[in-house]
Design a protein around this nucleic acid. Sequence first.
DNA 1: TCAATATCTGAACATACGTTCAGTTCAAGG
DNA 2: CCTTGAACTGAACGTATGTTCAGATATTGA
Lengths: 195, 195
Amino acid sequence: MARKTGSHSETTGPLVRQAALRLFAQGGYAAVSMRQIASEVGLQAGALYLYTPDKQTLLFDMMHEHLEELLTAWDAVEKPTTPVEQLQTFTQFHIRFHLERLDAVFIANMELRNLSPENFAVIEKLRKAYEDELQSILAAGHAGGAFRVPDLKLATLAIIAMLTGVNTWYREGGRLSRDRVERIYWNMVRRSVGA
Amino acid sequence: MARKTGSHSETTGPLVRQAALRLFAQGGYAAVSMRQIASEVGLQAGALYLYTPDKQTLLFDMMHEHLEELLTAWDAVEKPTTPVEQLQTFTQFHIRFHLERLDAVFIANMELRNLSPENFAVIEKLRKAYEDELQSILAAGHAGGAFRVPDLKLATLAIIAMLTGVNTWYREGGRLSRDRVERIYWNMVRRSVGA
DNA sequence: TCAATATCTGAACATACGTTCAGTTCAAGG
DNA sequence: CCTTGAACTGAACGTATGTTCAGATATTGA
């Protein structure tokens, strides 16, 4: 196996992280043992510690990388000018990005309480940063009269909850295409803010 | 301590179940030990087995009771005649019921994967039954032209995800009153289905 | 008051956990 | 070919787990 492939600050090897991701998503952080992870990669448990300092770092690194990717990806998206269009862009981006990462999203939502307090603080900050992206779109639309949003924070969280909810039921090859799901959700989101 | 207080079919003692509920919600099923639960009730671990056959049953019983209560409570609600009013009733009911049971809801959403397959099947059925309640309201409204809902199943899940999302941020004594939260959410739900 | 029954303890069982580490294997460079 | 260093094993460490159970304690009814 090859180790630390460079530029990140993560202390975790990518192959190990990938295996742990699948297993954590399936069984939960607390329920998955280092021996299970090792056997998934074809190693003995001891060898894992060449790739991660401990189990907790494994969890933190995958959440951290996920959220960094999320923010970077959103940053790279070309933004339209009007709030309504921006909200549509955000909606489609959110659904698409999250559906491509079922395991990582599941873990990021479910395993927060298994982070050490310091690690939790880091992750929470990144989550907040993403929420703020949506919130500022809603704020702009509210100020310009395009949206009717009685409470910004609440609307932000409500929309994100609704959108992330797709992950609990959508499966590739199911009844609805991803495009169609995106369109329907966009309509619901748009109407929910009165646009 | 008093044991089995009667009419339910649960095999779990209520005091033990209540303590386990708090602890499971806080730390997760897999991360909480029988000894922790026992110490919370002021017993030794062995004594717990007078109140539950095993840890798994503890988890199942609390989920099962929660969902039974949910369905019973919704059953007892007086329903208005029009779909729009019904949707409003459902929205308020859902928020109110769920906010009064933060721990139970958290567990019901997070610990599904820790149920044995047979137990999971039972719980899943009850969840589905509740979703169907909302879905039939949407169906009626769609048929009568009060709602515009391109996909019934999707809209049902989207609305429930949005509503249950309240539990992740609302806390008693926070910035918004529960009444205000209910009103804002109702407006978003109403608009999201085009009513 | 005494026996019967319900409740609970404390220790033990087998098994699993995260982590460490001395020592083996293996690939590459000189 | 031999040396060096990284990659990995396998066993061990201390601790924790869910569950069982013989025996002690408390409560109750006659």
